[in-house]
Every structure is written in structure tokens, then in C-alpha cells.
């Protein structure tokens, strides 16, 4: 009985992960096709910024919609029922805003002119968007701290520590190779997007390691 339940849970978890990956890939493809078809847009660091921006943005959108419509949210968020979303809305709401702001920040950076890239957004507007998103992101993050409970604080600390180690290994190793002339150093946008993606990977790793990706 219990193994049957576990199999169902594993199937649901895999289905959710595959759905998330398909939606993410489809939105990234649509973004790259319709929002901008400028030359050089597929440059690796800009592509990484688009992926980071859309991933954070879609996560924010999913959590935001789920928080505003708990019954709907209970169908795709990993919660017991709609009431749980209502109970946690003071933490989920700001969390969604933070993700949306991070998404906006990375998309503005990706669309801004840099080097030979003419950009799909004027530099001043991109800079303003980045500045406003950054300040708001820091403000909302600090404000939501009072609504975060012990488990989520512990997960955040653990994920940040893992992300720091992984970033040091990945970008530190890369920097060492670049210093020695064995590799080319990445652009500032590539580094920033890489750090955001490593942080995201660390969060999923820490949550998954505790078995918390499994449907409840």
C-alpha cells in the first residue's frame, strides 16, 4: 500500500518537474523568437541571463497566481490543500514578488545594450529597471524575513552555503584557468547570471535532498 502511494508520489513529482521544464523551455523559446530576434542575442551570457530571468519570473508567477487563487494554486504548488496557501500567504506573497523582481532584473540586463549588442531596450530604461528592481528586491526580502519560519530560514542558510561553495568551485576554478591562460574569462553578465542559476540549483538541491520535492 505504502509503496503504491510512494510510486504515485514519485510519478506526480516527475510529472511536475517535466511540466516545469517543458513550460520553461517553451517560454524561453517563445521569448527568444518573438520578443527579440536581434543578432548576437544568442550569445551565451545573454542567454544565461534570459534563462535566469524567465526561470525566476515563471516561479514568481506560479507562486503569485497560486497565492491569489489558493484553490487553483493547490493544484500545482506542493501543498496539502488550499487552506495551507491561505495560512502562508504572508510569506508566499512577498516570495513571489521577490522572484518576479529578480526575473525582471535579469531580463532588463539581458535586453540592455552591451558591447557590440545594440540591445532591445534603451540603456537608461534598462539601468532604471535594474536599479528599481534591485532596491525593491532587497526591501521586500528584508520585510518578508519576519514571516519566514525556522524551516525556511534553515533551508535558505543551507542553500546559500551550498551555493557559495559551488560558486567558488565553478567560478573560482574558471577564474584560475582564465588567469593561467587556459580559458577565456566570462562577461560580467555571464558571472551574474551564473551566480543566480547556481543559487537556484542549490535551493532545489537542498530541498530535494530532504525529500521535500515529493508531493505531500
Amino acid at each position: 500500500m505504502s509503496s503504491a502511494i510512494d510510486r504515485t508520489k514519485v510519478r506526480t513529482m516527475i510529472l511536475r518537474m517535466v511540466s516545469g521544464a517543458v513550460v520553461g523551455a517553451a517560454v524561453t523559446g517563445l521569448f527568444l523568437t518573438f520578443v527579440t530576434d536581434l543578432p548576437d542575442f544568442s550569445e551565451t551570457s545573454r542567454l544565461a541571463a534570459v534563462i535566469a530571468g524567465l526561470t525566476y519570473g515563471l516561479m514568481g508567477l506560479a507562486v503569485g497566481v497560486g497565492t491569489l487563487a489558493p484553490r487553483l494554486g493547490a493544484t500545482f504548488l506542493n501543498v496539502e490543500d488550499a487552506n495551507e496557501i491561505s495560512e502562508d500567504r504572508r510569506a508566499l506573497g512577498p516570495g513571489a514578488i521577490v522572484c518576479l523582481l529578480a526575473g525582471l532584473l535579469f531580463l532588463a540586463l539581458a535586453l540592455a545594450p552591451a558591447g557590440d549588442f545594440e540591445g532591445a531596450m534603451p540603456r537608461d530604461i534598462a539601468a532604471g529597471t535594474v536599479a528599481v528592481s534591485f532596491v525593491a528586491l532587497v526591501g521586500v526580502s528584508l520585510w518578508m524575513r519576519r514571516y519566514i519560519d525556522e524551516l525556511n530560514r534553515a533551508l535558505g542558510i543551507e542553500a546559500s552555503a551550498s551555493a557559495m561553495n559551488l560558486s567558488f568551485l565553478l567560478f573560482g576554478g574558471w577564474a584560475a584557468l582564465a588567469h593561467l591562460g587556459y580559458a577565456q574569462w566570462i562577461t560580467p553578465l555571464g558571472l551574474l547570471s551564473g551566480l543566480a542559476l547556481v543559487q537556484l540549483a542549490a535551493i532545489f538541491w537542498v530541498v530535494g535532498e530532504r525529500g521535500m520535492l515529493m508531493p505531500r
Binding site: E87, A91, E150, L151, N152, G211
Partner: peptide
């Protein structure tokens, strides 16, 4: 404390801090 935290403590996915215990 969220329902998620209670669930994680019950299912042995999270050991609470001493003050919480």
C-alpha cells in the same frame, strides 16, 4: 510556524532547533 514545517518535523525531514523543540 507553517504547516510545511510541522509536516517536515513529523516525517523526520527536519530536526527543529532546541528552542522550538
Amino acid at each position: 510556524m507553517s504547516r510545511q514545517t510541522i509536516n517536515c518535523v513529523e516525517t523526520d525531514k527536519y530536526d527543529p532547533s532546541l528552542p522550538l523543540a
